[in-house]
Nucleic acid binder design. Sequence first.
DNA 1: ACATGTGAACTGCTTCACAGCG
DNA 2: CGCTGTGAAGCAGTTCACATGT
Lengths: 212, 212
Amino acid sequence: MKRIAESTVRRLSLYLRFLEEFEARGQVTVSSEELAQQGGTTSAQVRKDLSFFGSFGKRGLGYSVPELASQLREILGLGRKWRVVVVGAGKIGAALVQYRGFRQRGFDVVAVYDNDPRVIGHKWNGLVVRDVRGFGTDEVQRPDIAVVAVPAEQAQAVADLVVRHGVKAILNFASAPLTVPDDVAVKTVNMAMELETLSYSLVNRDVESDDD
Amino acid sequence: MKRIAESTVRRLSLYLRFLEEFEARGQVTVSSEELAQQGGTTSAQVRKDLSFFGSFGKRGLGYSVPELASQLREILGLGRKWRVVVVGAGKIGAALVQYRGFRQRGFDVVAVYDNDPRVIGHKWNGLVVRDVRGFGTDEVQRPDIAVVAVPAEQAQAVADLVVRHGVKAILNFASAPLTVPDDVAVKTVNMAMELETLSYSLVNRDVESDDD
DNA sequence: ACATGTGAACTGCTTCACAGCG
DNA sequence: CGCTGTGAAGCAGTTCACATGT
């Protein structure tokens, strides 16, 4: 299978959400045009995105909502549960663990770590906060995904730690970009960057804003 | 001035952070190569990004750290304070308001809104939670940026409300994309999408992961 | 000699337009 | 006839490579 653009994968994720809405409303069929309108893209884009993975539609008719949803779940790897650990028991970590869509979509938070002795050992959202220095040697099974929610200065050290113990995917909330081996996937969510992009667009009103 | 790619603006934001680190360490000059290494990009990219806005470097020498930092702040519109309101006094809102880099970079949270009568009126991170129905008619000055941190079903209604009252920039944490007029900038941070991108890369190891 | 600034080449994503099929 | 699936065209962002300035 050929390389798929990240932008394509992100749109697939969006399409899936729309399909679930259509499904909840009892709609059994959608056209690429309907999906496109929801997602702020074009029907050609929708069809092209899907075509990388197969032919899921019926010509003259559209796509079966439940069938396409199921295909997308398969493609996105949502057919299974993923073990997630959160490193950093601060506000961001707390918000994440409480986030509804998290567990809902098969991402199970199985452990929380911190390095602050005042927090370690306390119950936190139903989980005991563990000492990060025990990562990988405690009884917690190796997680699939590590969420890094620590200050920027500590982010790289945490990344190194989890990578050393075999974690292959990191969701990074520190504003510092992380350096990891090629076979580890990193997604960085950088709040400051988002805000500054908005700030830029405010002082450059002539430039059109992009609604993504 | 011509249209600048969003990716370029995001990188400028990154460069600024690195420059501030260099500044703190007392380094007075940087080359495009040094900036590139920090940011995981190439020196040509750095120079191209900057060239859209002017010629800030000295040939054979590089860039003055404080001077370039100051230029970038200017370009990004960080030379002033921005009034930010948070709509949705939940966990995500809480995490955001506490986020250090927020106020640090000139983004002042001046009000918090919610629609839950059990929360309205309570002190929350030093601010009283206001009734969202009073938005625009209360004594709070019109904000520059609205952070939408409400459930997906309510996100569009909130967006409509703040846009109606003249807000021109929205940071959206709901997983639903927002529809807004052309002159309003929206940045959507979609946690589910990030997680699903990671999930995808875990089930498609052959595809190389991108460290952004 | 060294590092910037930039036109030109390249790469890859998006859009177009239409053939194909229900 | 309607809507999908897709090769081809178009476009935008990145990389190259070198002329330019110190």
